[in-house]
Amino acid sequence: MIIDQNLKLALKTTVALALALTLAHLIYAGSSSNGLSGRSAMGIVFGIGATAIFVFECLLSARKKLVAHRIGRVQTWLRAHIWLGLLSFPLILLHSGFRWGSGLAAALMWLAAIVLVSGVTGMVLQHYLPRLMQNLVDKETIYDEIPNRLKRLPAEADRLFERLTGGAGLQNAGSVPMLRTSAEFRAITPAPQELLSSEIVADIKQTVHSYLMDRPTPPATKLLPVRESIQAYFGQLRRITPFEVHGILNDLEDICEERRQLALQQRLHHWLHGWLLIHAPTSFALLVLTFVHAVLALKY
């Protein structure tokens, strides 16, 4: 959800509405005998309002599942979800008379606070992270394809090492078929092995190989954590190696860069969606316990 002008306007409206309700409640509290409390008439009205908002908020997940149904655009629902969600916490505070309470009431306040904070955090993350991802991950792929892609990178690197070592690949390609067309073979210029020492080749193999693993181990993690260090590493290699192998080194560098970007994409994806692991479950728990609180508060 991009925080655009419409959403900003909605947020300003929410703030203004919250302030107006607070003012109304303070005027009511000033004229009532016992001040602000959840049991007062206005306190109950605010409680009912907050509960209705909670119900609406939780219906968003159902709306997302019923995509084909014409009950308002999902985007509209999401905007209302944000707008009303921000309004719900002030309503709860007004309902409680700005008291945190104890027992179940306090638990509900904590849950509401967690839902609000996680929701706002998610909204901010979903505003900034996609743009960040676009800038930083130009080799972006479908998130679910990342594991498959990562699995193939070592095999691709192996083929390049074979050109360096004359056929002695570092690892099996695994389950990935290693088909090569005649055009691919023609495109490969055999590397003059005698121009590269075996130590250099072994060092490159170890560094790149360990970097392309699922969990990179030192020294790869120290040498190749960011784009600049990858560029520096392979730049150094190009300075000490003959020109004939530079093409292979460029390809290896590209593979490492792709590996880095895919890992970055994974992390950004986790941030982009991980907040929902907190937001969604606590929301539903909040809804259930709110009804419990309402029934038992009225009962007693």
Binding site: R152, V176, P177, L179, Q231, F234, R238, G247, D251, D254
Partner: peptide
Amino acid sequence: SVPDERGRVRSTKEIAQRLDYGYF
């Protein structure tokens, strides 16, 4: 320092093989 994608072997079949069609 980093050539474009044509430096790495990328045939149509290779590209197609990169995708796991059952991901969804």
